[in-house]
């Protein structure tokens, strides 16, 4: 369980995350949605101790993220951010192998090899594993990074907009994959999403943020409703039931 207790973050004079209290129960897929600047990514970065908070605490299974040794946390919680520019020149397989670093400190075992191959297969990267990252398209790179996070094999997996750069097929495959990780492997998956309909169709729980606060939280049935979304995004929505899925339209 991830417990977020009165967490705030200030950049200069602006409060980006404003006293958020939130409990993310173990298991399932939780989506965080909200307009730009709502503090979604910042909150995710604080949970994963990439940035410090100005107030409040975050605990993962009772471990305070700011005080727990990095490697202990890295075996429990993994994070993938949006922007993963790097100067290092690596092959896809080398990158995915870094997912095992928290477990092996750089010495690959046979077991690590199995984890790596499985992660590569999960993301359909078998044919690309010998390619260098700078020879890949944006979407292929994104999948390689996700494979690395899968390979880290942690109970909690956080993704900041994992669908960025992905075409429709791979976006759907990615969400199914994350769903499967939550259902079959019992992982706790938290994703920041921009596409409300992906959140609606794949989440167990949706958290809607606005102005640095949690505006609403609940099941897709509770959140994907016209009046709720209109209050969060400040624009008109229509909700349709299509094949048992709640689809929001807002294009006109």
């Amino acid at each position: 369980m991830i417990r977020i207790d009165n967490v705030s973050k200030r950049y200069g004079g602006t409060l980006v995350v404003d006293g958020v209290d939130l409990t993310l129960a173990g298991g399932g897929l939780t989506s965080i949605i909200g307009p730009n600047g709502a503090g979604k990514s910042t909150l995710l970065s604080m949970i994963s101790r990439l940035i410090g908070m100005d107030a409040g605490t975050v605990t993962v299974d009772g471990l305070d993220v700011t005080r727990t040794p990095g490697d202990v946390l890295a075996r429990r919680l993994s994070i993938l951010r949006q922007d993963n520019a790097m100067t290092a020149r690596l092959t896809v397989r080398d990158l995915v192998a870094f997912g095992r670093y928290p477990h092996n400190k750089g010495r690959l075992t046979v077991d690590d090899g199995r984890h790596i191959d499985r992660a590569l297969a999960y993301l359909e990267l078998d044919g690309l594993k010998g390619r260098f990252l700078d020879e890949l398209s944006g979407g292929q790179r994104q999948r390689a990074f996700v494979a690395m996070v899968l390979c880290q094999d942690t109970d909690y997996m956080l993704f900041d907009e994992p669908l960025n750069n992905l075409d429709i097929k791979h976006a759907v495959t990615m969400m199914r994959l994350l769903r499967r990780a939550a259902e079959d492997l019992g992982k706790t998956v938290v994703v920041v999403l921009h596409d409300i309909n992906f959140a609606s169709c794949h989440s167990d729980r949706i958290i809607a943020m606005k102005n640095g606060r949690v505006a609403e939280q609940g099941s897709p049935e509770e959140i994907v409703r016209a009046e709720v979304l209109e209050a969060i995004y400040g624009t008109a929505f229509a909700i349709h039931m299509i094949d048992g899925q709640r689809i929001a339209t807002y294009f006109r």
């Binding site: 990095g70 994070i79 520019a85 790097m86």
Partner: peptide, 21 residues
């Protein structure tokens, strides 16, 4: 030395992989 390659991935990734950056 075992952290060198991880550090080359950038600060965020290194922290995410548990290096006391």
């Amino acid at each position: 030395a075992h952290t060198f390659d991880v550090l080359a991935l950038g600060r965020e990734m290194a922290i995410g992989l548990g290096v006391p950056h």
